[in-house]
């Protein structure tokens, strides 16, 4: 049974592990998720799980979407997302799933929308080097040359200043430190994209084990 869940980032803190070492952790509130629909190969051409998170007033939802909830016989949810999985068996439409599907030690990936940084220069956005700030230099934080002399144009994909952040980001290889099913909290080791309160999708991953040399 593949594991995946929608949640909201609560914030970060630190905890001590059993050796007394400090572990940086992110807390994720997983609400209860409800299975709204199962996508199957025969019916839809692909397999996925459609999950809902949060409550919403019925009049806030458009009629076509409301119909989908009615078909599943569940209350409308604020967020409706599909999680692609190979196997949807083990999940029933209308079933509530929470943090308890994960266990400490599980490896997960977390997808979210990163914090928007606005229009940023090349140094912050792409890690460009800066020029000397003094000694008569008038070249401080510019992008430098845009192309070779005989390039005669700017090549596509040239890294330049521009808008940074507010894009979909997936972080892989985080581990589950603790699960609090009662409060539906998931505690992961490491940082997660997005602001506090931002929507995140937590999925279990199987990391290829590196051979020992």
């Amino acid at each position: 049974m593949p594991k995946g869940i929608l949640g909201r980032k609560v914030g970060m803190t630190q905890l001590f592990d059993e050796r007394g070492h400090i572990v940086p952790v992110t807390i994720i509130h997983t609400g209860p998720n409800v299975v709204v629909r199962r996508r199957t190969k025969e019916q839809d051409g692909y397999t996925a799980l459609q999950l809902g998170l949060g409550e919403v007033k019925e009049r806030r939802v458009s009629k076509p979407v409301l119909g989908q909830f009615a078909k599943a016989n569940v209350a409308p949810t604020k967020i409706l997302r599909e999680i692609r999985t190979e196997d949807v068996s083990g999940y029933e439409v209308g079933q509530k799933i929470g943090a308890e599907i994960f266990e400490p030690g599980d490896m997960v990936s977390v997808t979210g929308r990163s914090k928007g940084k606005g229009f940023q220069g090349g140094i912050r956005r792409h890690g460009f080097s800066r020029g000397p700030m003094s000694h008569g230099s008038k070249y401080h934080r510019g992008p430098g040359s845009l192309s070779p002399r005989d390039g005669a144009r700017v090549f596509k994909g040239r890294k330049l200043p521009g808008h940074q952040g507010a894009v979909r980001v997936t972080v892989r290889g985080l581990s589950v430190v603790k699960v609090d099913a009662e409060k539906s909290l998931l505690i992961l080791k490491g940082a997660v994209p997005g602001p506090k309160g931002g929507l995140v999708v937590v999925r279990e991953i199987i990391l290829a084990r590196r051979e020992k040399v």
């Binding site: 609560v10 001590f16 807390i27 409060k183 909290l185 505690i187």
Partner: peptide, 11 residues
Amino acid sequence: DVIKVLEAQQM
């Protein structure tokens, strides 16, 4: 809040 409760367990 949730974070404080979690921290309090180890403080």
